[in-house]
């Protein structure tokens, strides 16, 4: 197990992403942050806090659970628990920034996009991730990336956030049996 990002590096990455979001969208108008549970939700809250610090504006922030839209439910013997979807305002015509911890195959993002579409027609959806580890299986690309970590097939990425874990860090994990 190798530490790729420590707490300071994670914080710097989120600061930069927050600035990039403001820069790209020329401010906060029309923006809504949507986290993907579990850790994307905490990252969205942190970005919200940073933007509040920079601009003195609290962005509406929600969560979307994409479980019911997954394409692999058919392959699972046991059904995953559902998490909360909480979208505080109408997303029609808004610019959504979808936030997740790790971007990998792109399948979770695909399901989240479908789920969001069932809540309304946003003007645009952008994607922010803390880590992009490659190995995409769908044509999906992040707009804001904390850190690119090219991984081998026998490697995994672990994100720990102090909200539910004991500390902030990103780890590169070698899977033992491969």
């Amino acid at each position: 197990m190798q530490q790729i990002l420590d707490d300071k590096a994670i914080d710097r990455a989120l600061t930069r992403i927050s600035h990039e979001i403001l820069e790209r969208n020329k401010g906060t108008e029309n923006l809504v942050l949507i986290g993907i549970p579990t850790r994307g939700e905490f990252l969205a809250a942190r970005i919200c806090a940073k933007i509040e610090e920079f601009e003195n504006i609290t962005l509406p922030t929600g969560t979307v659970d994409a479980t019911l839209y997954r394409d692999d439910l058919n392959l699972k013997d046991e059904q995953p628990s559902l998490k909360e979807t909480d979208i505080p305002i109408s997303i029609a015509g808004k610019t959504l920034v979808l936030v997740d911890d790790v971007l990998y195959t792109g399948r979770t993002i695909r399901s989240a996009l479908n789920a969001l579409m069932d809540y309304g027609r946003p003007a645009a959806i952008q994607l922010a991730v803390l880590v992009d580890r490659g190995h995409r299986e769908l044509p999906i690309k992040a707009d804001y990336v904390g850190k690119n970590i090219p991984t081998a097939p026998n490697q995994g990425v672990g994100v720990r956030l102090s909200e539910i874990d004991d500390r902030d860090e990103v780890l590169l994990i070698i899977k033992e049996d491969s």
Partner: peptide, 12 residues
């Protein structure tokens, strides 16, 4: 059992 490669989460 399908392998869990389809899982997005890197938290392994």
């Amino acid at each position: 059992e399908p392998d869990s490669n389809g899982k997005e989460r890197g938290t392994a």
